[in-house]
Design a binder for these strands. Structure first.
Lengths: 159, 159
DNA sequence: ACCAAATTGTAGACAAGGCTACATTACAAG
DNA sequence: CTTGTAATGTAGCCTTGTCTACAATTTGGT
């Protein structure tokens, strides 16, 4: 059965399993980005609150060894998201900052949605950590609209 | 600053950054499970529809090479989720079946929620692929309750 | 029963992300 | 200005997950 490796249908009707394959592929690359996103978001946080981001702090907050943190930070630099001289702390590039900002927004939105749906804040915060990297822009927009609507509904009920 | 690696406070007030570390750790292990979950779910699907699950089909549906699929299936067997003799197709153990069932439920619920929130089905399906692995039971329950409520609301509006 | 083709399996390479152990640098206290 | 300690960086190892290339098995058609 299904010896149809080479069957060629027109592009319109073709993708029964290809769609699925593409989806999985996307999810896989998303996971590879997820870690970098977490690092960038955290570094941005440390920079904003403490004025500096030290590898050790990053490591402790992420729950990994400092060696791991440094290695990943090196990758961040290689990919143009971070900068910084040896022994001198980490900083974000323009791109890095933009990404951090995007992730922060995402995170907030996901948490807010979960909470609006009745998830306890603690759990919402934890789940969002995993979910936020897999939410498309379209879905994010839907979240935001839902939150607006439910907010105004609550407001009108109160008045 | 923060030279407090070994400081021991009471469990109640302690975890400012530890909480975050734990969350990241959880997310990391979740990602490691995610792939296995995808494989199990897919194998269960193939078994249900076609009666057999061949590594090649799994590979094609997942968009990876057959070698990768076989290696991962080996790991599935090692972890007690799948069985099967060489050259004889793959099957699921009790545990594997249970996991597949759980994932199927999860997936459906996540998709339904997204759709209910106004996300186009196509996109909901794709996003769910990434999200479903990071949704805790509590959050899942909240999803399900929301769906029930919004369903009954629609019903009463209609009557 | 045989053979060609497809499927399945194996080997070896690579990158990512983790770790521990060791080396180097910075810095503050004396 | 020395020096001890914390932070930073480096080296080497492990596991996952991916690939390509090659070997082995099964199977359907003759």
């Amino acid at each position: 059965m299904s010896r149809n490796t080479k069957d060629k249908r027109t592009a319109a009707e073709l993708p029964p399993e290809l769609t699925q394959a593409r989806r999985f592929g996307k999810t896989r690359t998303a996971q590879s980005r997820a870690l970098l996103e977490d690092y960038v978001e955290l570094i941005s946080d440390l920079l904003a609150t403490g004025g500096e981001a030290r590898p050790t702090d990053v490591a402790r907050r992420l729950g990994v060894s400092h060696a791991t943190a440094i290695k990943t930070i090196t990758r961040l630099k290689r990919e143009g998201l971070a900068t910084g001289l040896p022994y001198r702390g980490v900083f974000l590039t323009e791109t890095g900052h933009a990404l951090a900002e995007r992730m922060r927004t995402r995170h907030r939105l996901v948490v807010n949605l979960l909470v609006a749906l009745g998830v306890p804040t603690e759990i919402a915060e934890a789940d969002a950590e995993g979910i936020e990297h897999h939410v498309s822009d379209a879905t994010l927009k839907a979240f935001s609209q839902f939150l607006q609507i439910s907010a105004s509904t609550r407001a009108s009920r109160k008045s």
